[in-house]
Structure formats: structure tokens, C-alpha cells
Design a protein around this nucleic acid. Structure first.
Lengths: 252, 252
DNA sequence: GGACACCAAACTGCATGCAATTGGGGCGCT
DNA sequence: AGCGCCCCAATTGCATGCAGTTTGGTGTCC
């Protein structure tokens, strides 16, 4: 069980996949903030590939929900609404409960120490930037998913975790990672002990509290982009051409 | 709540999306069986687009797990292993429990009749081919997901449901759809009544029984492709070039 | 000064073309 | 016949080129 053959779907060494990985990482480390523009040319130039490839990569990331693709317009890093963020966390909770349910009592000794090592790394990174802490915390969950050896589960947990990462950069306040780390340790302990119900409850509580700390309130104000907020209203005048908004001072 | 603005991620009318939809449907209706080859040229020619577009579409479907992309080789319709199929169903159960939990007691009268209409259509289709019955049954679940108005949930439920469809064509026996339809009706009733726990249990049982009827046994023999079975063994000699398999009589 | 029309630059949508890789059939050898 | 080898058609990987759309800036008129 420890080693099924590596997934056929696993990202090979295509140029496309390389770019996807790079962009994904840039996004979750908030080097690219939500709303950041991603012109095909620039990406191509930056990564030394043609626009075709950059375009393809953007397509993949759009399928994962990390970037938003509008016809004839520049692609941008996705800007999930507050509700979408909440939905993502709800899904994530169910998926990760499934992960730990499958894993409880089934981890090898080496897997457990791998997990502990990872949390140690999280601990050491506490002095660094928030971005790195967030990435490591996310990778802990992905590491867990990988231990199920279920490619599908890995893919979904990864995707939804990345999306949650994205929302963190939108709606979260400075955010202390300490308790999260302790919760990670508790989860490992419960997994090792094999207490299925307990670990599911721990994971549920862990993610729920992260979500609640992050998604402080349905503050439409912090939704970063005025136009998004206005979109639903614009819908009601859909029949005619929407009035052009006056130029607005953009923060940032 | 009934009508959030339609998702920004929703598939527009790109040529790529058109092809994706067409292929997806062909796959779940088993017009394209698992393992079927999907050369870029042929697709392009068939749909009147260039290879670039066909390629891009294949990329999207690969991201959804419906097709398998091997470097420098012809893409094929995915052939999930028995274990992957089981994993897909497990995930699906959790996701759809979430769906009905969110929906219980929150459906409008018109939504309920929409659901009933759909099941009526399933009923009428009972005389037709299995493929259509399966598609309709799947679409019932997707319809439910759509009523949550959560784009993310819709996407994941759709994807995983399609994947389950795919496995049905691999591992399922003739398969009577009757009880499934009754279960659909029961779910609608419980949703309307607003009995959250009951409807979650119904959905769980429904999907579980579908899975159990479909995934009859971990029969590696029926895994359709001898080469897949041998793949893990080949992994162990990864350092050197894998021995070429002698030509083997291919069924079908 | 502000609104509108227009135009050029930027960018995407897509097709085509070329190099590289694969797999399968034919050929010779044993 | 059986086995291995080589070569070519089939196919993918990728870049480039062209046409159509959007953007943002400028000039003009009120």
C-alpha cells in the first residue's frame, strides 16, 4: 500500500507542466496576487517558450481554478469571492476527513517520521515570511493526501488546498500559524494511534478554525476589486449595455 | 440563493470547450470506450479545427481525468484501475453528501419540480440503451450539485461523476437502473421534507450501492489491458530500458 | 473641463509548418 | 518459422504567423 505505481496522470516534464508548477507556486506564495495579469507573451518570454505553451499552461491552471480566463482578455490570477472561499473550505473539510479516515492506523513508521519532519520544518519556518509558512502548512495536507496513494484524492485535495491558499491571501489577517502547527502534531499523533473518529474530528476542527480565522466575515469591502462587487448589480441591466464605470482610484 | 451570477469559470463557447463537451459526452455514453485512441489530427479534422485546439481540449480532459496523455504517444480514453474507481466513488459519496446537506429544505418549489421532471425523463429512458440511462442518472446528480450554486462543488461533483461513469463502462455488468431511479425519487422527497440526516444517509446508501453493483470485485483480470497489469513490475527495472513485451493477442 | 469618437498598440484565437519521437511493417539472418 | 533490425509513415511537441478583438490614449467638439 505504501507504493502504488506513480500516477499516470502525474505531471511529466512537459514544458507546460513546468510552467504550471512555477505559476502555482508563485500564486500560493503570493508573489502573484489575486487579480494579477498573466499575458501569454510575457509568460512565454519569461519561461523561454512560445505563447502556445504559455497559453496551454494557463488553460490547465484555469481548470484548477487558480487563474481566470476571459475570452479575448488577459488572464488573471483568480479572485474567489468570499462565498467561493467558504465553499472551498467546506469541500476541503470533507475531502481531508476522508484522507485521515483512510490513513488512521495505517501509516508506516517511516511515513510518520516523514510527517514529523515536515512539521519540524514548519516550526523552523515560523520566523520567516507568512507566505512560506502558508505554503508549508498547505504542503503538509498534501503530503497526507499523497500517503493515501490515491491519485484522485491527491489531485482534489491539492487543488482545493491551493484554492484555499489563494483565499488566504485575499481575506486573511496577519494570522498566527502557531496553533495550526500544534494541530498538525495532534493529527499525526491520532493517526499513529489509529483513532479514526478522533483524527477525523481533529482534522475537521483544524480546517474549520483555519477557515474561520481566515474568512473573518463576509466583508464585501475587502473583496479587492470593486468591479466584482458591482457585477451582480450590473447583471440586472443585462439587456442594455452596462454603463461604463468612471475611472476609480486603484489601491496598490 | 437560487441565482448567483453564473460562474466566471463556466465553459464559454470556445472551440476548445465545445470539443471538450462533445468528447466528454461521447466518453460517458461509451461511444468512446476506455482505451480508445484519440489522435489530435483526427479530432481536429472531425471537429473542423486545427490540431492546436484539439490538443488543448485533450489537455483539459486529461486534467479532469477522462483521458490519459502520454508523452509522444496518442492520447487515449482513461482506463481507471479498479482501485481508482473505488477511490472515485468514495470521494463522490462525501461530495454528494455535502451537496444534499446544503440543499436539504432549501429547494424552491420550481427546483423540486425540475428534479422530478428529470427523474421522469430517466423513467421514460428505461427502454432505451444503457448508455443513455447512465448518462441521465449522472446528470441527475450534477443537476443537484448545480442547485447548490457553488461553482466549485459543481465542478468537482461533475468531474468525479463522469469518472465514475467511465468506470461503469469498464467494470459493470448489465446493471438494472430501476432501483436507482426509485432512490432518486426518495432523495428528492427527503430534500423537500428538509430531513438533512435522512437525505445524507439516502445519498450515501444510493451511491454506495451503485458502486457495489458496479465494482463487482477486484478482478484484475478484467482490467482490460495486460500491459497495465504488468506496469508495476516494469517499474522495478526502471533503471534500464524495459523489456519489450511480446506481441499479445488483443481482445477487441 | 468633460464627453465622445477614433486610432494605434497590445493581446488573444487559431491555423499552419517544421523538427523530433514513436511504432509497426518489411527484410534479412539464423 | 522465429527472431532481430532498420526504415518510414504516423503522430506528437513546439514555434511562428495572421486575423480579429480589446485597451487605452489622443484629439475634437461641446
Amino acid at each position: 500500500m505504501a507504493a502504488r505505481p506513480t500516477s499516470k496522470t502525474s505531471e511529466s516534464s512537459d514544458k507546460v507542466s513546468v510552467i504550471c508548477r512555477a505559476l502555482r507556486r508563485a500564486i500560493i506564495e503570493q508573489a502573484l496576487e489575486p487579480g494579477a495579469k498573466l499575458p501569454e507573451d510575457s509568460l512565454g518570454e519569461r519561461f523561454g517558450v512560445s505563447r502556445t505553451i504559455a497559453r496551454h499552461a494557463l488553460g490547465q491552471l484555469a481548470a484548477e481554478g487558480l487563474v481566470e480566463l476571459r475570452r479575448n482578455r488577459i488572464a488573471v490570477v483568480a479572485t474567489p469571492s468570499w462565498q467561493e472561499a467558504r465553499d472551498a473550505f467546506d469541500i476541503r473539510i470533507e475531502l481531508e476527513r476522508l484522507v485521515v479516515r483512510q490513513l488512521a492506523g495505517k501509516l508506516t513508521r517511516s511515513q510518520i517520521s516523514e510527517l514529523n519532519d515536515h512539521v519540524d520544518a514548519e516550526d523552523r519556518a515560523r520566523g520567516g515570511t507568512d507566505a512560506v509558512s502558508i505554503r508549508l502548512a498547505t504542503e503538509f495536507h498534501i503530503l497526507l493526501a499523497q500517503m493515501t496513494s490515491s491519485p484522485i484524492l491527491v489531485r482534489y485535495v491539492s487543488e482545493v488546498a491551493y484554492r484555499c491558499c489563494l483565499t488566504l491571501s485575499l481575506y486573511s489577517r496577519p494570522h498566527s500559524t502557531e496553533c495550526a502547527i500544534n494541530e498538525h502534531r495532534a493529527i499525526i499523533a491520532a493517526l499513529a494511534k489509529g483513532d479514526e473518529a478522533k483524527v477525523m474530528e481533529l482534522m475537521h476542527h483544524h480546517l474549520d478554525s483555519v477557515a474561520n480565522r481566515a474568512l473573518v466575515a463576509p466583508t464585501p469591502q475587502r473583496g479587492r476589486d470593486l468591479l466584482d462587487i458591482l457585477a451582480p448589480y450590473a447583471d440586472e441591466v443585462a439587456s442594455d449595455r452596462v454603463v461604463k464605470l468612471p475611472k476609480v482610484a486603484r489601491r496598490g
